[in-house]
Design a protein around this nucleic acid. Structure first.
Length: 511
RNA sequence: GGCCGGUUCGUCUAUCGGCUAGGACAGCCCCCUUUCACGGGGCAAAGACGGGUUCGAUUCCCGUACCGGCUACCA
């Protein structure tokens, strides 16, 4: 009888959530949902010194934006609450005591200075079998002295006692069997002097208590896995241990190493999922959301960093990811992040997305630029006209502003050199024709009609339509971009077209 | 230094012993488009190295090289 799949994402609330973090969430989420299981968010706030106010809320907001909401979390609670490790402090102490009682852990009274001195003295110092007896701990010291130190409230930590010789191995879903020689790992601190557990103790205890069946985390955790395996063996039994999977890292696009916040700033792309403002420095780091990414695209691009379904398919909705995801197809090697490809995913999703939905997302950007949208349906129509030339949401501003207001600047330099009297005459007459249409009660005309009339008029003026298209476009939108000119005229209506033509004609003659 | 992990086009990747090594992004060219895109077509571009195993290795094994991670009372 298989127990229900339960996975967890366990971040420290120390700042913004970066790409790697969100991808870890994603893979956890996909795995859980694929197996009809549960996804837990647990906040690992055991390091008081690194705690950052607002970071926990930020994490929850980020998951919500990505659509990766946990089934259990500090915010919404759940059957295994509390989900904040700082609120579970007393629990860890019990397990630490149990380990000490069984001789699998011990008290250590060394001060920071003691350790520092020892590290300076001995190259490659390890707090393990080799030097354990030289230190101030309950194994090296006489029982009475230990008792006395404890009685006098001397600060202490609890360290795991790594067995002298043992091969510690486990099966990683992605990497296969991984084994370590226990003698190469040191006696890690389990409980800190302030009574808080370290990550090592906390993950094991909480994964057990919260009935986690599969534990996924970044590859950077692989080296400390033997400590966790040993703890599982000591405390709960290996048969209860979750299946492990260590995910490959997301690396810098250039050079080498793990992708960091600094790389984004240096290379000009976001690294955090959403804007993050450091409460201390007030410094804001831009996020994918604010940069103009769609959550669907963000999730899609993250999934493809280290995973694929074995076919050439690259565009996946979250539902498709859930049904197709399998941990066995996750890569072992790290992936360099490519921002160009990331933008491609977004462009694909923009093209794919429903115009009305897109309109709601684009509206705030227009508002911010002071562009007034009087009619929602009109915006939806415009979106349909320009979406395929937009990569990021803010691109809609430049690509569609001229549908709502006359361009602020006119690229006159692109018209001027080839401007001639004949063209002036052509546009004067075009204005006249449009005015006549308005007088006849027409507000606008279909693009096709507009085009035919335009070309006919050009011919009668002895001009090639092609020589008039560019000037006309610039008059209408201000530059060399945008959808077909007649689609624009059809939508902005005849009277606005007249205004814009006259405006540019004025600029041309005043020069 | 030690330990652990990794290594296919510039980048993300396919390949579960048969490969003329496929796709995508980026790049270049052409078509479409009297703008910019989208779209279509094409070009260029890869198995770190050395040993095995095998009829046959990118695929399996072993070394070496290189890259990365860890080596805190941080996660």
């Amino acid at each position: 009888m298989e127990s229900k799949v339960r996975v967890r994402f366990a971040p420290s609330p120390t700042g913004g959530l970066h790409l790697g973090g969100v991808r870890t969430v994603l893979f956890n989420y996909l795995f859980a949902k694929h197996h009809g299981g549960e996804f837990v968010l647990r906040i690992e706030d055991t390091d008081q010194t690194r705690f950052v106010a607002g970071a926990e809320q930020y994490i929850q907001d980020t998951l919500a934006w990505c659509g990766l909401n946990p089934d259990e979390s500090p915010l919404h609670g759940g059957p295994f609450a509390p989900y904040r490790q700082s609120e579970r402090k007393a629990i860890y102490k019990e397990y630490a005591d149990q380990l000490i009682k069984n001789g699998q852990a011990y008290y250590a009274f060394d001060t920071a200075a003691d350790l520092e001195a020892k590290r300076a003295e001995i190259a490659n110092f390890q707090y393990s079998k080799a030097h354990r007896m030289e230190m101030k701990n309950s194994i090296a010291l006489p029982a009475e002295e230990v008792e006395q130190l404890l009685q006098s409230d001397t600060p202490y930590v609890v360290r795991i006692k790594i067995p002298d010789q043992a091969e510690v191995k486990f099966e990683d879903i992605i990497r296969g069997e991984v084994s370590f020689d226990a003698s190469t790992v040191d006696d890690k601190v389990l409980l800190k002097a302030d009574g808080m557990p370290t990550y090592h103790l906390a993950v094991v205890v909480d994964d057990y208590l919260m009935k986690i069946t599969h534990a996924f985390r970044g590859e950077e955790w692989l080296p400390s896995a033997p400590v966790h395996i040993l703890l599982w063996q000591y405390l709960f039994g290996l048969d209860k241990m979750p299946k492990w999977a260590h995910l490959p890292l997301i690396l810098k696009p250039d050079g080498h190493g793990k992708l960091s916040k600094r790389d984004g700033e240096r290379l000009g792309f976001p690294v955090f999922a959403m804007d993050w403002t450091d409460p201390n420095t007030k410094e804001t780091t831009i996020g994918f959301k604010e940069k103009g990414f769609l959550p669907e695209a963000f999730v899609n691009l993250l999934a493809m960093l280290g995973w694929n379904d074995g076919t050439d398919k690259e565009i996946f909705s979250i539902e498709e990811l859930i049904t197709n995801f399998s941990l066995e197809r996750v890569h072992k090697g790290g992936a360099k992040f490519d921002y160009e490809k990331a933008k491609w995913f977004n462009a694909e999703w923009i093209k794919k997305m429903d115009n009305a939905l897109l309109a709601e997302l684009v509206k705030p950007y227009l508002d911010k630029e002071g562009i007034e949208v009087h009619e929602a349906a009109y915006l939806v129509k415009v979106i349909g006209l320009v979406k395929e030339r937009c990569v990021l949401l803010p691109d809609f501003v430049t690509q569609s502003a001229f549908f709502f207001q006359a361009p602020k600047t006119i690229d006159i330099a692109s018209i001027q050199p080839k401007w001639e009297e004949k063209k002036q005459g052509f546009f004067n007459e075009l204005v006249k024709i449009y005015s006549d249409k308005i007088a006849q009660g027409l507000k606008t005309m279909p693009a096709e009609t507009l085009e035919t009339d335009f070309k006919e008029l050009a011919t009668t003026h002895g001009l090639k339509p092609g020589d008039l298209m560019l000037p006309f476009r610039i008059m209408l939108v201000g530059g060399k971009f945008g959808p077909g000119v007649f689609d624009i005229v059809e939508n902005i209506e005849l009277k606005d077209a007249i205004t814009r033509i006259n405006h540019t004609l004025g600029l041309l003659s005043s020069n």
